[in-house]
Structure formats: structure tokens, C-alpha cells
């Protein structure tokens, strides 16, 4: 299997096929696949009604983003972590978390770990991943259990369609003269 990061899946397929009609069919499949990689449609409503614990969610996402920048992960890893986190929270399994801060923390660690394993060339050890200040640290066994639960709830659909997939496509669609900025864009 290729060592490339997982997010390049759709793009590499797009590049390997040269014809524009196939590229268009790839954008169609991206759009079709997007709902399978999004939180449940009523999630926003439940957030507004506070049936999702927004304080815990905000704390968790802050922790994910802090850990993300501490480990100098790529932008895609942050997007995927939060995507997994929200999709899990919007699923029926979210009730196992209850109102426990530590359970949200375990979910955050599992989501960041999964995203890092999907995208990062160097994945820190699970205890190193948790170096940032948190009242809770979990043993790898517990994290593994949570990882498995998250993946089961996400139907193992971890290759989420993200804005990056679309950006690649739109760059590809640009006339060749404007594509000179592509490298510049990549380096950002």
C-alpha cells in the first residue's frame, strides 16, 4: 500500500485519470460521498438546543487544536480530528460519554490519534500525544478501545471528504496560466 497520506486518495485518482469527463465524475462522487462523512443532519439543531454539551465540546476541540499545533501536525489532521469528533458526537453512541469531561477527553485523544495515523508521516506514541496539559491521561489500551468504538460508529469511513479534496479539484480546473501558484499554495 502506498505510504502517501490518505487524503490524497481522491486526488491521486483524479490525476491518474487524464480525461476531463472523469475529473467531473470525481467531483460528482466527492459531492455524493460528502454526506457519508458529515455529522448527522440534526446535529446543529441539537447543538443549538444544548442537547450536546457545548462546553465539553469546546474544551475538547481546544485541546485537539493545541495538541495539533504542539506536534506540528498538518492542517488536514486538525480537520479530520474535529470531523471524527463531531460525527461521533452526533451518533447515537454519544450517550456513552454522559456528561463526563474525562470521557470527552478520551474521545479527543482517540480522534486526534486516528487522524494522525491517517495523515502524519510520524505519529507520536500515545502517551506523547497526550503531553499537553489535561487532568486526564489514558493508557494506550483505553485509547485503543475508544479508537475502535469511534471507527465502528463512523463505519470505518475515515477517509473523509474534506475541503482539501475540492481545492485540489478546483486548482486542477484552473487554466494552466494560473496554475503557477499551485506550488506556492501547496507550501502553505
Amino acid at each position: 500500500m502506498s505510504d502517501n497520506s490518505a487524503s490524497s486518495l481522491f486526488f491521486s485518482a483524479a490525476v491518474n485519470h487524464q480525461s476531463p469527463s472523469i475529473q467531473d465524475s470525481i467531483i460528482d462522487s466527492l459531492i455524493a460521498a460528502e454526506p457519508h462523512h458529515s455529522p448527522h443532519p440534526d446535529y446543529l439543531l441539537r447543538c443549538q438546543r444544548r442537547s450536546v454539551n457545548l462546553t465539553h465540546r469546546q474544551d475538547s476541540i481546544n485541546w485537539i487544536l493545541n495538541a495539533h499545533s504542539h506536534h506540528r501536525f498538518q492542517p488536514i489532521t486538525a480537520i479530520l480530528s474535529v470531523n471524527y469528533f463531531d460525527r461521533f458526537l452526533s451518533s447515537s453512541s454519544a450517550s456513552v460519554l454522559g456528561n463526563n469531561g474525562w470521557a470527552f477527553q478520551l474521545l479527543s485523544v482517540a480522534c486526534l490519534s486516528l487522524a494522525a495515523k491517517m495523515e502524519e508521516p510520524d505519529v507520536p506514541l500515545l502517551l506523547d500525544l497526550q503531553v499537553l496539559e489535561s487532568p486526564f491521561i489514558f493508557e494506550p489500551k483505553s485509547v485503543q478501545r475508544m479508537e475502535l468504538l469511534v471507527m465502528a460508529k463512523l463505519n470505518w469511513r475515515l477517509r473523509s471528504v474534506t475541503p482539501f479534496d475540492f481545492i485540489y479539484y478546483f486548482i486542477f480546473k484552473l487554466p494552466p496560466s494560473s496554475r503557477t501558484n499551485e506550488l506556492h499554495f501547496h507550501s502553505k
Binding site: 479508537e147 470505518w156 469511513r157 477517509r159
Partner: peptide, 29 residues
């Protein structure tokens, strides 16, 4: 000892994403 191995996650999520009439389908994990 380190959660679910990353190589396994990548491989299964890829198999899961692949759909082709001439490839045996992974139905469930």
C-alpha cells in the same frame, strides 16, 4: 500497546472506500 496500528487503519479504510464490480466487497468491519 499503541492503539490500533496506523497501517491497518489506512488499509481498511481504503478497502472500505473502494468500490469496483471486479473486486470482492468489504461489507462490514
Amino acid at each position: 500497546n499503541e492503539g490500533v496500528p496506523g497501517s491497518l487503519i489506512k488499509e481498511i479504510t481504503l478497502l472500505q472506500a473502494m468500490r469496483h464490480a471486479n473486486i470482492i466487497k468489504l461489507i462490514d468491519v
